[in-house]
Structure formats: structure tokens, C-alpha cells
Amino acid sequence: MKARLFLVPSILLALLCMSTAVSDATILIKKDLSQLAAEAELIVIAKVGNQSARYAKGTRVIFTYTDLTIERVLKGSSDKTMTVAEVGGKVGDITLHVESMPKFREGERVLLFIKKDTLGQQRVHGAIQGKFRVVHNFATHEDLVLFDKGLRYVTNNFFATKGDKSPTQVSLSEFQAKVLELVKKSPKKTAKKGGKK
């Protein structure tokens, strides 16, 4: 026999909220902003420069290497310029395509969460989840961070204060402040145990 039309006792409704984080992973392992902030070794605002593709050293896998000019570092340290690698790209006649990897366009301004991969290359952390486009609103002279409407879970719980429960853009200053706050809150690595007294 199938159950039918049981009313949900309202007391239970409060409990329901707690159970909802269980599933809803994605083909990408979901990262929200606090996880990105905690796990990234480097968080930068940068301008995208040249791109070139080659087989990564010691592999037969094509990566595209994108030069970045760093405007601001929110976590970690970086030179004025750096290069991020992304799997995929074209070498000679051969193109490699991999789903859900971030892509860059020359001239684009971005805010990136970066972490070294197991080949020692700097990579956007969380694939497409760790790349944000930054644009300038010429009307308001404000820099804005654009959210992908399909990846609302990354930002949803961090910018829900202004009436709009899931904004698709916020000002760069608000976004930076939130990232810095999350970096501060994130658990420190234990690697430096026993360093200073």
C-alpha cells in the first residue's frame, strides 16, 4: 500500500531544512564561496592576457596556459604576472575538450580562486565554480562581479541580505569584503605547527 496525503506536521518542517544539504552534489564537486575561500591558496583579481596551449610536461594531455596581470591579491602572494593552466585546448591539428572547465578570453577581468594541481600548475579551484567575471558599469562607475545564474549555490548564502535572495551580481567591493571575511574565518592550515612561540 502506498502512503497518501499525510500532512507534514509543522514541527517537522523545521527539521527538514537540516537534511537538505545531504545530496545535491554535482558532476562537479560543489564548492560554495566559503569553501573556495578556505581551499584556494591564492585569490586574485586579474586581467586576462595571452593564451597558449601545449602538452603539459610529462603528459600527453593538452593544457591551455593563460597569462594574468594581477591587480589585487586577496589571499596568498603573487608576482605582478602569473599563468594559470586549464585542461583542454588546441595543439597543431588536435583539440582537447573537457566539460565544465573554465575558459578565458583575452582582455577579460576576472576574480579567481587558485590552487596548485598535482602537476604543480596553478589552476582555477573548483573548475567553473572558481572563476568570476568582473565588469565595469559605466553608468554607476562601479565594478561588478557577475554570478553565473546556474551556479547560484556558490554565492547564494553570502549575499542574501539586500532583499534579493539570490542576486546575480554584486559590487566588487562587497564581494571582496565577503571573500576577505571568509578567508579570515577559514581554518588555518596546520602545517606551521610549532613555528613561533
Partner: peptide
């Protein structure tokens, strides 16, 4: 679990790689 595989798969549960040539034939 290898350096190359891990670098590719990153934050995905799994990934597929497709290498194709100029005629869009998968090699």
C-alpha cells in the same frame, strides 16, 4: 590516483576527455 589524472579531474566527480582532429574526428 596519479598526478596527471588528479590534475585533470580536479573538482569534478569524473571527467571525459575528447581529443579530436581538424576534421572533428575523435582520435
Amino acid at each position: 590516483n596519479s598526478a596527471t589524472n588528479n590534475a585533470i579531474v580536479g573538482s569534478a566527480l569524473a571527467v571525459s576527455l575528447v581529443f579530436f582532429n581538424g576534421s572533428l574526428e575523435i582520435v
